[in-house]
Design a binder for these strands. Structure first.
Length: 404
RNA sequence: GGGUAGGUGGUCGAGUGGUUAAUGGCACCAGACUGUAAAUCUGGCGACGAGAGUCUACGAUGGUUCGAAUCCAUCCCUGCCCA
């Protein structure tokens, strides 16, 4: 089998491993079952999960078997790692809905057919019925408090109030690994680097119970050059669900990344061959835009499919370059075209309130059909709909089409 | 259980009776410059209203006052120290 671990390393995915050489050898020797946990705290994944899916996908392509663990049970607690406050809790129903939505998204990355078909499990299925006394006796006794609170990730919480409830998270996640290890012969847990301590917990638990064949691997988290989490937009996170973040917006996010991020993004979020990435990432100055276009297209294709990616691309070309068309722009059909420019801006979702719409106009940030609007009380009229539509633009990059 | 310090806008954090929709940093939006980049500079950043202005907001609920984020009472939550 291919040396997939080495490949992932070369590509820059891997941050830490419990035992590099053993893992590498194992993955070349046999088809390994591994798992990745995803918390269903929202009805869509965001790009924070993207790298995880890429790694899972690559491992599966190399012949290994993925388990996608939906944290339906643990999400009820909330992972305290790195958080400064107690996470908001969700009801069972909300969680179940989220699990379904996320399943669909994961299907783009891993195959559920064939010899090493992926499976999806939900830890609510085994965690919710746990008996507390037995759990504490069998699992709780394997952890020491001193070791737990010594962990960096709990340090912050220790000062601001870490509850026992949250401490239980480590035990539960560790138990998940043990459960999957016993039931599916799952040998590796992968996760973002912030999960390192939780993953180690599972590995150690399995060791203490008596098996030596469990490993952990963490991959790099997507961050910007200044160390912040990548994927924040004006509207919050960059979601993978097209209802929450349109493919066009999604495309634009990657089209507009900083020069210094190009290589990392291509490496981690596309399947392009290394040589191609090398070529693209070394383009200088203005020419690096070519690399950004390709990155945006490839990444959008992975998440939304080729058709949507093409649409987003041609919409972008229409707006920023020559040719193309306006077909794929976010569009609103107007019942009554005689509305004020302010209402139109709010209606299009370009600004969240009328006050902000006014601010935008007075600052010269609003353009209608390539003409700057400087009159707050402007109303749309027939003349604005030359070919049956009007193009409203905010700043340089945000467009919206109105059809009559 | 006792003592003590706190809970402010997306976030961090000032403010301790009126000029406070609330200083400042970060984040975010727009303008200029550019390459749909970065950096920099400028403006903006609760809602409604054309505007004067009105409403909502400083943990919760009541109260004092012409007037409260600021004072009082009760409650909820959190840190720290002691048991």
């Amino acid at each position: 089998m291919t040396d997939i671990i080495k490949e992932l390393e070369d590509r820059g995915y891997i941050e830490q491993m419990t035992n590099r050489d053993e893992i590498r050898e194992l993955f070349q020797k046999e088809s390994v079952c591994f798992y990745i946990g995803i918390d269903p705290t929202a009805n869509s994944m965001h790009i924070g999960h993207f790298v995880a899916l890429m790694v899972a996908s690559r491992l599966q392509k190399a012949g290994h078997k993925p388990i996608i663990l939906m944290g339906g049970g643990t999400a009820a607690i909330g992972d305290p790692t790195g958080r400064t406050d107690l996470r908001q809790m969700l009801t069972r129903e909300e969680l179940d809905r989220n699990v379904e939505a996320i399943k669909k998204q994961a299907e783009r990355f891993v195959s559920f057919e064939g010899e090493n078909a992926a499976i999806i499990v939900n830890n609510a299925d085994w965690l919710l019925d746990l008996n507390y006394i037995e759990f504490m006796k069998d699992i709780g006794s394997k952890f020491t408090v001193a070791k737990m609170i010594a962990q960096e990730c709990y340090k912050n919480r220790l000062e601001t109030g870490l509850t026992f409830f949250e401490m239980g998270y480590l035990l539960l996640q560790s138990y998940d690994f043990l459960y999957l290890h016993d039931k599916y012969n799952c040998k590796l847990q992968i996760g973002g680097n912030d999960q390192w301590s939780n993953i180690l917990g599972g590995v150690e638990l399995i060791r203490k119970i008596g098996s030596e064949d469990s490993y952990g691997l963490t991959f790099k988290l997507l961050t910007t050059a200044d160390g912040k989490k990548m994927g924040k937009t004006a509207k919050g996170a960059l979601w993978l669900n097209p209802e929450r973040t349109s493919p066009y917006e999604f495309y634009q996010y990657w089209r507009n990344i900083e020069d210094t991020e190009v290589r990392k993004v291509l490496n981690l979020l596309t399947f392009l061959p290394d040589e191609e990435i090398d070529r693209l990432a070394s383009l200088k100055d203005e020419r690096i835009n070519e690399a950004k276009k390709i990155a945006a297209f490839e990444i959008t294709k992975l998440i939304h499919g080729e058709e949507e990616a093409k649409k987003a691309e041609s919409a972008a070309n229409a707006l920023f370059g020559n040719g193309g068309n306006t077909e794929d722009m976010p569009t609103t059909k107007l019942e009554d075209i005689n509305i004020s420019i302010i209402d139109a801006i709010v209606l299009a979702g370009i600004a969240p309130s009328k006050g902000q719409a006014k601010t935008l106009i007075s600052q010269g940030g609003i353009t209608l059909n390539e003409e700057k609007i400087d009159d707050i009380s402007y109303r749309l009229c027939d003349n604005d709909f030359k070919d049956g539509y009007a193009i409203l633009r905010k700043g340089k990059k945000v467009f919206h089409k109105f059809e009559k």
